[in-house]
Design a protein around this nucleic acid. Structure first.
Lengths: 409, 409
DNA sequence: GGTATTAGTCCATAATCTGTACATAATCCT
DNA sequence: AGGATTATGTACAGATTATGGACTAATACC
């Protein structure tokens, strides 16, 4: 626990600045008088703070606000999408992505480069990412937007600004450098995807975002903020135990969710590579072949799976059914332990949602019993953009939380 | 999200008061000069704040502090255990408990009344609790201690200060009233036990406290604060799925941890009441009779179980082994989802620790594979007092977090 | 015993918010 | 149409709290 420091007048002012900006952000355009009302500050104080926010380009005046009442009309103050923006970046297994989001969380630019980053050289990949970033920053500048910070999503474990381990990239202990000259942070892709769903998705403030990819990750958002656990490793739902004596998983354990509902398990329905022998003695409800399969290959495979499902292919439907039931078991444990508000399925689960959600919900309801209501199962609204958007959103969040520091007021 | 309010000078002062008191609490006796150094405030400011804390009885001067250095020696300022105290209360299935803890977190009084509160009348039980509370408050007053707040631990679901449902007490929607005339809060027993372990136990700031009782609850502490989930229902480890098609649980689900490792399951080893038919088709590693049994009866049963274990009784050892393995499976899921720092076993698991921890750790390590190191399994240091102590500790915590409000400075 | 050094207090100054007064701009009413 | 009414936003004096340097106090070193 860092020894907390005393606060001075400037901290009080910084706090009030954040309170005013936060009120504008939450409630939408407000007059100075309404801001004074909702924050408990006086009109005088609000006026001074708003004038500084105007100067910094964080807010703008948008003509009169009328409530049909008598008296002088107020001047609406709203977040300005014209001056400052955030840069979101993502390195993933088969692409690089960048986006620019303005202060109103409107997506202004989005750019993706396909690239095979499996076992790539970090230097080369980062150089390509830098070019992409420079490009979008320049385009944003042409729109009058100043990028005030960046965040980078990576498919791996991040600790203290250092990418410790990204198995699918084959990277270990990589320090990211050479990005555009703004403050930046780096975080795990699943975490940022959950935040992306928070800020750009359905708008709920409490949910568990479950992202099916090669592995299966989850990010828990409680009251609008991300739960990370003691070491930042929380949400590893892919290795929750579904069957204690199930087939071995690549993690070294047995019967993990990933074995039943990972991308590879789903794609074995395509008949590509039933690599391992069938599971030994799986209990009822999870019977059937569950090879710890080999890749059916990227998102193309998922598109083909969806095509087969739509065509009513029995094998494909059975694979989804099996995965859905396994997901339901894992979600039962997750609901009891994490108590999420609702459950959002993203990643490859988003296109498969129509076939997965039924079995998953059924199993979940059966196992939850009467202790609590079954949380709503919803599909992610933003699909594969979740992580980049979440990264940009994180920068915006930081700005809203402390505008004085971020904007140098 | 409550609209956050602007802060004024008094909030700045309140914050600094908490910072100063927190520094004293964390670091132990400190001179005013050292406080100024560690908080970043000036000596003048610290002096004024300390003088108010002295007057309120929160801190006391304890003679000179010498570092062997030259110059005028500082006056050590430390938390005062002489003036203010907190009241912890607990209603449980077979007893009522109360304790008084002073500001230094020293336990000054502890009192337990055995009482059968199963399906009791809330009014009668609360009246008995009030008498107990009045008694200890009076005794504390005789010691010069002013009780500034109380917290009550109950075995049930609490929402907004209201006890929504306590199945073992047979209470629903009870509002607690008539306690001594101080501010009080009410919270779930497992949550408060976890906090008790935080403040009165091993001193770790990150852990999952697992409490075996009739049911099995858990409280997750991350960086010194409790994780509650979206609706305050997090940590229900007792109904994590261990075997998807296991025997039915009283919750309506199947194969929950509680079925394998609850107090009743453990006590069936005593041969008291194998009430239900044996489980159908449990997979290897969890084979054996696992009746969703009836009570073997209170802590007396546990004492007998321990006696048999010490005597090397095969049936008892097998029950513990089975429960330990099931616990290991559930903990695997918990570790992946919650990422706790370590795992502390309490409640009836504390006396059974020598027989449970081996199998549990073995299963946990096997299932975690190489993804992460196995968290340390530790035994709770405070046993059955955890919840009352946690309740009192919560009040102390509130005081330390905001001394101005709590002490009326 | 004198000097250096550190602790704690005093007082003038600075930063920020509050509260009242006032100019401004709209609607309402006659 | 014109004045009354009402609400917005700004100006200025006053209150609160922290800062910073000067000053007193107490101890160690020489």
């Amino acid at each position: 626990m860092a020894a907390s420091r005393g606060v001075r007048h400037d901290a009080m002012r910084a706090r009030n600045m954040a309170v005013v900006l936060g009120a504008i952000h939450r409630t939408g355009p407000l007059s100075r008088a309404a801001l004074a009302e909702s924050t408990g500050l006086t009109k005088t104080t609000v006026s001074k703070l708003v004038s500084d926010l105007l100067e910094a380009g964080a807010v703008s005046e948008r003509g009169a606000v009328r409530g049909g009442e008598r008296g002088r009309p107020g001047v609406a103050v709203s977040l300005s999408g014209e001056r400052v923006a955030a840069l979101g970046l993502e390195i993933n297994i088969d692409y690089l992505a960048a986006c620019v989001v303005d202060l109103t969380r409107a997506v202004r630019l989005r750019r993706t480069r396909t690239a095979d980053n499996r076992n790539s050289n970090p230097g080369d990949t980062l150089e390509a990412l830098r070019r992409l970033a420079d490009e979008v920053v320049a385009e944003a500048a042409a729109d009058g937007l100043r990028v005030i910070g960046a965040a980078l999503a990576v498919p791996g474990l991040v600790e203290g600004g250092l990418l410790r381990n990204a198995p699918h990239l084959g990277w270990r202990d990589v320090r990211v450098t050479g990005l555009p000259d703004v403050p930046y942070t780096i975080d795990n892709e699943a975490n940022l995807a959950a935040l992306g769903e928070l800020w750009f998705g359905s708008g709920a403030a409490d949910f568990l975002y479950v992202s099916g990819e090669i592995g299966i990750g989850a990010g828990l958002v409680v009251d609008g903020s991300l739960f990370r656990g003691a070491y930042g490793l929380a949400g590893e739902i892919g290795h929750v135990v579904v069957v204690p004596d199930g087939p071995p998983c690549r993690c070294g354990g047995r019967g993990c969710l990933e074995v039943y509902a990972g991308q590879d398990a789903l794609l074995t329905a395509l008949g590509d590579a039933p690599a391992d022998p069938p599971a030994e003695d799986p209990p009822a409800g999870l019977r059937g072949d569950v090879p710890a399969g080999l890749p059916g290959g990227g998102t193309a495979g998922v598109a083909e799976l969806v095509a087969r499902l739509e065509a009513g292919d029995g094998e494909a439907l059975a694979a989804c059914d099996r995965a859905g039931h396994a997901l339901g078991v894992a979600l039962t444990s997750a609901v009891h332990l994490l108590d999420p508000g609702r459950i959002v399925l993203g990643g490859v689960y988003a296109p498969l949602f129509p076939w997965l959600s039924g079995p998953a919900a059924e199993t979940l309801t059966a196992h939850l019993g009467h202790l609590r209501a079954t949380p709503e199962l919803a599909v992610s609204q933003i699909g594969s953009d979740a992580a980049v958007l979440g990264a940009a959103g994180l920068v915006i969040q930081d700005l809203l939380a402390d505008p004085v520091t971020v904007l140098g007021l």
